[in-house]
């Protein structure tokens, strides 16, 4: 084992980019960074859902006073880089909030959330929710509008209120249809948390960068990449699975490639048993 590591470290490229020794030593800090990134992701995403749903309904409103601000918000956020939004929100937030200084230096502001100070955490969450809310709003809106008008009419003709029709007929169908896209947004948001390294939040990327700066070695980044993939790869597979399942429920048939795979699997099993 030691011999193998020694051999690998002797190759310059491997040593500089994928050094087993350095990645191993980085693991504790990278794990802390991963926890921070995951906390940002989960809290940020969960709060983005109601924000996105609200913005989606506002954008579908017939009333221009409600619709125009939502349209502006969605277009503005989706049309500008997240990094710019993070800088504006992260450094703008304290300027806007009265008593921010007392809060940030006070006991609540110092509470650690997965290794991040609360005073940093709330600003990061604000940036994530404002950003992701706009993307989710468009996902929700497109999903709701993809449900045929006849569904709402059928529900209404049975005496349901618009709210009931939404809750029991339109939204359940929408969620099923957009679940894969919502999961993709979740994955995207996870990768986006890396941008918080720019404002000094010790998430995964900044942890890697700190070790890299100390060792002049790229391996910590590769270690960080491993942590990102730990979440994105299985989730990506899950999205693919959900999409296939959705195709079955919408058309009553499995997609061709899945059918083919099942047939081959069955044939193999038959061969094995024979």
């Amino acid at each position: 084992m030691e011999g193998i590591i020694e051999y690998l470290e002797s190759i310059k490229f491997v040593h500089l980019f994928m050094s087993p020794t350095i990645i191993w030593q980085s693991l504790p800090l990278l794990w802390k960074g991963f926890q921070a990134a995951a906390a940002l992701l989960i809290v940020g995403y969960l709060l983005s859902l109601p924000a996105g749903l609200t913005a989606a309904f506002m954008k579908m409103s017939k009333n221009p006073i409600v619709r125009i601000p939502a349209t502006f918000y969605i277009d503005f956020i989706r049309g500008t880089p997240l990094l710019v939004q993070i800088l504006v929100i992260y450094f703008g937030f304290p300027l806007l909030m009265p008593g921010w200084r007392e809060f940030a230096t006070g006991p609540i502001g110092q509470i650690s959330v997965a290794g991040i100070d609360m005073s940093q955490f709330v600003r990061a969450i604000a940036a994530l929710v404002i950003n992701s809310g706009a993307y989710l709003a468009e996902i929700f809106r497109a999903g709701i509008q993809s449900i045929s008008k006849g569904q709402l009419e059928a529900a209404r003709s049975l005496g349901m209120t618009t709210m009931q029709a939404m809750a029991y007929v339109i939204i359940p169908q929408t969620v099923r249809r957009i679940l894969p896209t919502m999961m993709s947004e979740f994955i995207l948001l996870f990768k986006d948390t890396a941008l918080f390294f720019a404002v000094g939040i010790f998430e995964l990327t900044l942890q890697a960068r700190t070790i890299q700066a100390r060792t002049f070695n790229m391996s910590p980044y590769i270690g960080a990449a491993g942590f990102y993939l730990m979440l994105t790869l299985p989730l990506g597979r899950l999205v693919a699975y959900l999409e296939a399942k959705l195709a079955v429920s919408e058309t009553g048939r499995e997609p061709e490639n899945r059918q083919e795979r099942k047939r081959r699997k069955a044939a193999r099993a038959k061969e094995a048993s024979a």
Partner: peptide, 20 residues
């Protein structure tokens, strides 16, 4: 109107069953 609709049944050309 919802109270009235509850006693006026309607059937559509495109069925409009709730697929879920």
């Amino acid at each position: 109107i919802n109270e009235i609709r509850a006693r006026v049944g309607m059937v559509f050309q495109s069925f409009n069953l709730f697929p879920h």
